[in-house]
Amino acid sequence: MLALTVRRLLVAIPTLIAIVAAAFLLMKAAPGGPFTTERQLQPEIEQRLKAKFGLDLPIEQQLARYLFGSEEGGGLVRGDFGPSMTYKDKTVIDIIAEGAPTSAILGFGAMLFALLVGGGLGIIAALRQNKIQDYAVMALAIAGVCLPPLVVGPVFQLLFGVQWGILPSQGLHRDEFGLIYLILPIITLALPLIAIVSRLMRASMIEALRSNAIRTARAKGLPETQVILRHALPIALLPIVSYVGPALAGVMAGSFVIETVYQLPGIGKQFVYAAGQRDYTLVMGVVLIYSFLIISLNLAADIMYRVLDPRARTA
């Protein structure tokens, strides 16, 4: 297990560098720049701003400066993500730290909700295979996959926030932080995940119930509840564990849309704004954070898989 972790971490370093370089080049290839605004700056002022951030250098020198810093210090290898080009007197770390709690609660909350609801529905569908409960769960799963959060979000805002007034439709007050503002965003983000988790759990639970291990457990006269919870469920969870790592990273990335729709002060909303304003350093910082999350969550999923399935430890 330790050897696997060390190998994956060693591979992660060049992977992150490649991601940073690719994102940097793509950002530079996009038209416009951080100082291209409707109000035209004077040429000397624009030139001084470009010189301050090193934008007047050749692109390979700009990338080297971003990675390794300059004589004045800084550099990604020293943990310095640099200053924001559009937010005055704010560093990229400051902006990410402000939005990270909201994005983390939104992403992990949606995944936890999806695992509980989707896992429960999948188990019910598997135990009642080819019956009305099974058909109902599969119909809900298809609907969840077909309805994107970009469509569901405004509908929930209209119904629960405006028409019925049950939940806040948007916004998040930092001075009175409450999870009530995140209920609708979490549910909206979780719906496609619930659909996928329920289908995965149904298929894996049906396969587990047909395995020789379950036949042996039933032959020993164990109660059906114990057979399902102690023997079938751990086997059925293996595909779910493999799915959770990449899915959670996808949820964090998918929160960009949700945070924009519900006007939440998370990293995703800041990323959308930064991309529109060509704030290179902020975009690069968010890309690096999410890349690190994807690698870390995939590693955590692999480790958890090996903990649940002893056969994978020797693979």
Rank of each mutant, 00 (worst) to 15 (best):
G99D: 01
I228Q: 05
A126C: 03
G73Q: 05
I258H: 04
L67D: 03
P43Q: 11
R278I: 06
I187F: 15
E44N: 11
I267Y: 05
I289R: 05
V307E: 03
Y290G: 11
S211W: 06
V257F: 09
A208R: 00
L297I: 04
S204C: 02
D56H: 07
D175P: 10
K88F: 14
P239S: 03
N298S: 13
G245N: 09
H173C: 08
I228S: 04
V272C: 09
L127C: 06
D302N: 03
M304T: 10
I13A: 14
P310K: 01
D134K: 01
Q61E: 14
D56E: 07
D279Y: 04
D89T: 07
S198V: 02
M252I: 15
L2P: 00
Q170C: 04
T86N: 14
L229C: 12
T314W: 12
S296R: 04
L55H: 02
F256C: 08
M1K: 05
M201D: 01
L282A: 08
E46K: 14
G254P: 07
G221T: 00
D89P: 01
V117I: 15
G73A: 00
I295Y: 10
D309K: 00
Q226M: 12
I96R: 06
D309G: 00
K52Y: 15
V155K: 07
G109S: 09
R230N: 10
R65A: 15
R230H: 11
G178P: 05
